[in-house]
């Protein structure tokens, strides 16, 4: 296995790329997910339909196909010239946002109507109700579901290989090809993914414990 050490620099770079893409995708996706969830729950008919089309597209087609569309098809049609990293990041954000919309919608709807009426009864505006009542609860309720998305998107970054982003899987493929030792290389990479995911799960578990509120627990 020592031969892998000489490639460690590339492996680390690949890992950092995968981690960065995950963070970009999941945080951009969170902003998008919260926005589309609010539009879906409180918006008018038009916004509900638009959100529906967006979500169906990204949840109803493979990530790899989405990556190909954003890296090859869209530039071909629009003349837009972006590199694989930008196209990949945008696709991950849109893809994750579609899934996170569902999680946030569920969490927003878990804040019961009686609390909304109570908020109105003390004179809070709609905006204040969202800010002080709905979102603080929804953001806590959503953590377990959101953790799943973090893990899922982290592993999905390996799909970026299809558009040539130098992430962990793509680095592994190159090393395997150069060394003719696919067995050791791919197993090592799989273990790196596993350790990474385990650490993320642990961190999210600590976060969840910290912000947990009696009576607001949800089982995953």
């Amino acid at each position: 296995m020592e031969f892998l050490l000489q490639y460690s620099r590339f492996i680390i770079e690949g890992f950092i790329t995968a981690l960065t893409m995950t963070i970009i995708g999941v945080s951009g996706g969170a902003v998008l997910g919260i926005t589309t969830a609010l539009l879906d729950v409180y918006g008018g008919r038009v916004s509900k339909v638009l959100v529906g089309i967006y979500v169906e597209f990204f949840r109803g087609s493979p990530l790899i196909v989405q990556l190909l569309i954003f890296y090859f098809s869209i530039p071909a049609v629009t003349g837009l010239n972006w590199d694989a990293y930008t196209a990949g990041a945008v696709t991950l954000i849109l893809n994750s946002g579609a899934y996170q919309k569902g999680y946030f919608k569920g969490a927003i709807e878990a804040v019961f109507k009686d609390q909304l009426m109570a908020a109105a009864s003390i004179g809070l505006t709609f905006r204040q109700t969202l800010r002080y009542i709905v979102l603080p609860q929804a953001l806590k309720i959503v953590i377990p579901a959101w953790t799943n998305e973090l893990v899922s998107l982290g592993l999905s970054t390996s799909a970026l290989i299809i558009i040539g982003v130098r992430e962990l899987t793509s680095i592994a493929k190159t090393i395997a090809a150069q060394t003719f030792r696919p067995l050791e290389v791919y197993f090592t990479i799989a273990i790196i993914y596993f350790i990474w995911i385990t650490i993320m799960l642990k961190i999210m578990d600590i976060v969840y414990r910290r912000v947990r509120i009696p009576g607001l627990e949800v089982s995953i």
Partner: peptide, 10 residues
């Protein structure tokens, strides 16, 4: 004051 206790649970 509501029939069901409608406190803000968080």
């Amino acid at each position: 004051v509501f029939q069901e206790p409608s406190l803000f649970r968080h």
